[in-house]
C-alpha cells in the first residue's frame, strides 16, 4: 500500500505534494531539475481570458523568512495555455494531474476560463483564485465579499467539467464567512492560503520597494497563519482543503495535514530550492515514521474525527 496516497474530489494523488500556483509557472523549466512525474499534482500559474502583462517592476522583495510579490497575474492567456502549456505537460507527463488556477477581472471572465480550461483532459480540478491581492479588479474583491464569492463560485461550478476548489484569502477578519458562502455555492473544496498583503519601504529612496506599492507575503513567515486558518476552516466545514503557506519540509507538510489539510502545495520554497517538492516527497516516509504515522489517509481521517 502507498502510505503517501491521498484522495480528494477529482484528484487521486500518489502523494500529497504539489507546486503552488505562480511559484512553478507551467513546470517547463523545473523539468530540467527533476522528473515532474514524482509530483502528486501540479497547480499551474493563473489563467485569464486574454494575456495579462502584470504589474510594474520591481515585483518581488525579500523579507525575513519570507518574500513579497506583486506579479499581477502575468500569464500568456487562456488560448496559449490550452494550446501550448497544457499539451506540453500532457505529452510528457500523461499521468500528472493538473489543477488550473483561474483568475479574472469580472464574473464572465472567470466563467469563460472555467468552461474552456476544464475540458482539457489533463486538467483534473480548478483552483478559483478569488484571493489575489495584487490586481485592482477581480481577485480579492470576490474573495472578501461573501455574496460576490457565492455568486462567482456558483456560476463557475455550473460550467466546469471538473471539481472546483476555491482559493481563500487570509486578508479577512473571519475567513469562515467566505468558506461558508463558497461551500453553499457548490465548491468541492478549498485551497488556502493565498498571500497576506504587505509592504516594504526602501530607506534610500523613501519609496515603496515594489512597483505596485504593496504585495503578497509568502514563505515560512506565514506558516503559523496558514496553520491557524486551515484549522479554523477545517472545524467549520466538511469540504477537503489543499493547504499551503510557508511549507519547506516534510514536517511542515504534516503540520498542515494535522491542521486539517488533505494535500499540500509548496510555493516560495521552489525559489530557494527548485527541488523542494521531490525533496519533501522523499523525506515524508521517514518523517512519518518518526511521528508514528502509518499512512496519510488514516492521518487525515483521524483529523476529521478528532480535529486538533
Amino acid at each position: 500500500m502507498n502510505r503517501l496516497a491521498v484522495e480528494l474530489p477529482g484528484l487521486k494523488l500518489k502523494n500529497p505534494i504539489m507546486p503552488a500556483s505562480g511559484c512553478f509557472g507551467f513546470g517547463q523549466r523545473y523539468a530540467a531539475f527533476y522528473d515532474l512525474n514524482q509530483l502528486g499534482a501540479i497547480i499551474i500559474k493563473a489563467a485569464t481570458v486574454t494575456p495579462r502583462t502584470g504589474n510594474p517592476t520591481p515585483r518581488v522583495a525579500e523579507t525575513t523568512s519570507g518574500m513579497l510579490n506583486a506579479i499581477g497575474l502575468q500569464n500568456p492567456g487562456l488560448t496559449a495555455i490550452m494550446t501550448e502549456k497544457l499539451p506540453w505537460l500532457a505529452e510528457r507527463y500523461p499521468d500528472l494531474p493538473v489543477i488550473a488556477n483561474v483568475a479574472g477581472a469580472k464574473e464572465s471572465d472567470y466563467v469563460t476560463v472555467c468552461q474552456q480550461i476544464s475540458t482539457v483532459p489533463n486538467v483534473k480540478a480548478i483552483e478559483l483564485n478569488i484571493s489575489c491581492p495584487n490586481v485592482a479588479h477581480g481577485g480579492m474583491e470576490f474573495g472578501t465579499d461573501p455574496e460576490a464569492a457565492y455568486a462567482l463560485t456558483k456560476a463557475c461550478c455550473a460550467v466546469s467539467q471538473v471539481p472546483l476548489y476555491v482559493k481563500l484569502s487570509p486578508n479577512m477578519t473571519d475567513i469562515r464567512v467566505i468558506a461558508r458562502a463558497v461551500e453553499a455555492a457548490g465548491a468541492a473544496g478549498f485551497t488556502m492560503i493565498n498571500t497576506l498583503v504587505g509592504m516594504q519601504i526602501d530607506l534610500k529612496t523613501r519609496q515603496p520597494l515594489l512597483g505596485n506599492r504593496t504585495g503578497g507575503l509568502s514563505g515560512p513567515a506565514i506558516k503559523p497563519v496558514a496553520v491557524r486558518l486551515i484549522n479554523q476552516v477545517h472545524q467549520s466545514s466538511r469540504l477537503p482543503i489543499i493547504g499551503m503557506g510557508g511549507v519547506m519540509s516534510a514536517e511542515d507538510t504534516l503540520e498542515l495535514i494535522m491542521a486539517g489539510a488533505s494535500a499540500v502545495a509548496v510555493g516560495t520554497a521552489n525559489f530557494s530550492n527548485p527541488q523542494a517538492c521531490p525533496d519533501i516527497i522523499k523525506a515524508l516516509p521517514q518523517t512519518m515514521d518518526r511521528y508514528q504515522i502509518k499512512d496519510l489517509t488514516s492521518l487525515i481521517q483521524e483529523m476529521a474525527v478528532t480535529p486538533v
Binding site: 517592476t57 515585483r59 518581488v60
Partner: peptide, 16 residues
C-alpha cells in the same frame, strides 16, 4: 539586472 525570484523563467518577477 532585475530583481528575481525563480531565476529560471517561471515566475514572471524579473520582466523588462
Amino acid at each position: 539586472e532585475s530583481r528575481m525570484a525563480c531565476g529560471v523563467g517561471e515566475c514572471y518577477a524579473c520582466v523588462v
